[in-house]
Design a protein around this nucleic acid. Structure first.
Lengths: 119, 119
DNA sequence: TTAATATATGAGCATGCATTCATATTTTCG
DNA sequence: CGAAAATATGAATGCATGCTCATATATTAA
């Protein structure tokens, strides 16, 4: 990767800032994982689901009712959140109850919400 | 919206949880704004840009060098971040220096990063 | 077992998005 | 002024994504 400094057309004289910044560049895997985490919160439907689960455990049917969305649409979004370990599923009879998997998710959601509402 | 409770096929007997959750449902505008905020961090390239700007102010050329990406690709992502007020631009001669616009962004980024690295 | 309920899943489609390529704009230097 | 450097922007393209529709799976009830 010695030629990474020739990819960009920009070629100003002082490269010191770039050299110093290089050590803070996230590697591809880390950057991708962080992006995936935030991607879970990058859709209004998923934001609403997380907002609801931040206050109470709910089953799929309840989420459908409150969100006013079809069951497959909600289930697909829940699968996204499950795969990213944002929510956990608990099966009880015919129902599957979902909760936030992590206290960090709770914090991230409220921090993002606070930033929007106080802007 | 009185028929919002008939959209989903699921129709179990106890609707109390859904009724109680309804008051915590985010409105469309708020959910969209929160989603947009997190969408800024939902791409690996933007995550890396924010990670770099969390440590130092950098111009476009420096970002191109460190990221190893083309100048238009970086500029387009910077525009996304600018429009969402995630970063601020400061013009100095031919260069445009970018910084994180807000301390909240700094916190959100580090919280997401910590969640990933300590998982 | 058969029917009904609750949820999950796969295919298809329409939209959004991240990049590239080409070009415009702005600033400095000769 | 003209040329070069730094950045921004527009069009085009390939790929991801969020929904709908149809269907599969699992659990309870009759």
């Amino acid at each position: 990767m010695t030629d990474s400094f020739t990819i960009c057309a920009a070629d100003h004289t002082d490269e010191s800032l770039a050299r110093a910044a290089e050590e803070h560049l996230l590697d591809g895997i880390t950057a991708t994982h962080v992006a995936e985490l935030f991607k879970a919160l990058s859709d209004p439907t998923r934001v609403r689901i997380i907002g609801l689960l931040a206050h109470a455990e709910l089953c799929v049917g309840d989420l459908c009712l409150v969100l006013g969305m079809s069951q497959p649409a909600v289930s697909h979004q829940l699968r996204v959140l499950r795969n990213l370990r944002i929510v956990s599923a608990r099966k009880e009879g015919r129902h599957v109850f979902y909760t936030l998997a992590d206290e960090h998710i709770h914090d991230l959601f409220h921090q993002g919400l606070a930033h929007i509402q106080h802007d």
